[in-house]
Design a protein around this nucleic acid. Structure first.
Lengths: 206, 206
DNA sequence: CTTGACGGCTAATTGCAATTAGCCTATAAT
DNA sequence: ATTATAGGCTAATTGCAATTAGCCGTCAAG
């Protein structure tokens, strides 16, 4: 990895741990193995480093959109696959969603950074909401809608069902972000949640 | 309100909006209506202001523990009340929990500040987890456990049921914190969530 | 009525961290 | 071979924001 890229990588790590304001350009430089002034051969300012991270992340999200699908392609294809999904596969789906968010290194650091920095900038708050609320709910909601149509799931309110699927995943994720030592506990609870979800919505409720 | 207290109040507002590092002591002073150096007649340093906020919040949490109970006293008493709870009352309970967190001014600003500052300090992360994960889940879990015992609710896993109750409330709360203009939308979804929750757990599931 | 502490002000001072200046080496293109 | 560029370094410089110094008016207690 070239220096220019290493800077982004180390900066993201530090920003996600301590927040933008508490990271000095010297800290970033040190991790990269150079001196602070040398950073300026690559980026105009500390702020420019931050912006480059955001930009790179935007690109990644575009590239990796659909990384959570089974097919990795488009939701219509996925829906076909989901028609024949079993309970175990449903649980796997939720676990994979969780584990992807939890362990993907870039995603994880970016999420933590956004959590810290979201109130600095309206735009960042919007990115946060899109990534961790609107997009997951609308994408999962669409899949679940198709699954309801094909009889795999049953509900009279897909939106709420999707919320019931996703909200616990999100909550448990925030726990693990704050205290990685609780990961095992969270995974157990996640499993129980998914099994319960399947019980509830896997066939007709009132 | 005396100056000393006004300082804490304005500081909390600013910290919750912009984060500790982005607030200058001059900003706080200006809001209070004094000059920056005068602040030092009341607090030793900017850091001391921050710490005083944390301390005051700890006191409030102790004082207001149980503010969310129906009785305002102890859970055992509450449990008696919950035995005869109706669907509408259950929905009210959830809404009140949500609205309390959402609108109580001090709570709201403190929560936003914690969200921003939690990664600076292990201790703050612990406070966040306790306030917004462990305590709500364990308190609600206890109530629900009693309600299950008395037949108002039915499940074979109280912990997961509690998670299903609380996680959507938490998620919708984070949405409102980031974008207050979505409050109405969130309240609607909250209502739908609570009705669905009641349908699911209000009587036996498999 | 005077004194001392309380709380405010203006004008330094301090200190740190971002950035700039200016130099040096290696390497790759002409 | 020469030279321009990329990328590194050390040594300033800058600028800002926290804090300190030192002064002043008010007011309550003696």
């Amino acid at each position: 990895m070239d220096t220019k890229h290493r800077i982004l990588d180390e900066a993201l790590t530090l920003f996600s741990e301590k927040g933008y304001a508490n990271v000095f350009v010297g800290d970033i430089a040190e991790r990269v193995g150079i001196k602070a002034p040398s950073l300026y051969k690559h980026y105009k300012s500390k702020q420019a480093i931050f912006e480059a991270i955001i930009e790179e992340m935007n690109e990644r999200f575009v590239k990796e959109a659909g990384a959570l699908n089974i097919s990795g392609t488009d939701p219509t294809t996925d829906a076909g696959i989901y028609k024949g999904i079993s309970e175990e596969q449903m649980i796997e789906l939720g676990k994979n969603l969780f584990l992807y968010y939890l362990h993907d290194d870039y995603t994880k650091r970016f999420r933590k950074m956004l959590t810290i920095e979201q109130f600095h900038d309206k735009e960042l708050a919007a990115v946060y909401m899109k990534n961790y609320y609107d997009d997951p709910l609308s994408y999962q909601g669409m899949l679940f809608g198709l699954m309801v149509a094909s009889g795999v799931l049953s509900t009279d309110n897909v939106q709420v069902m999707t919320l019931h699927f996703y909200a616990p995943i999100y909550l448990l994720l925030t726990v693990c972000d704050r205290d990685p030592s609780r990961e095992e506990e969270c995974l157990k609870l996640l499993d129980a949640h998914l099994r319960q979800f399947d019980k509830i919505y896997g066939r007709s409720i009132g």
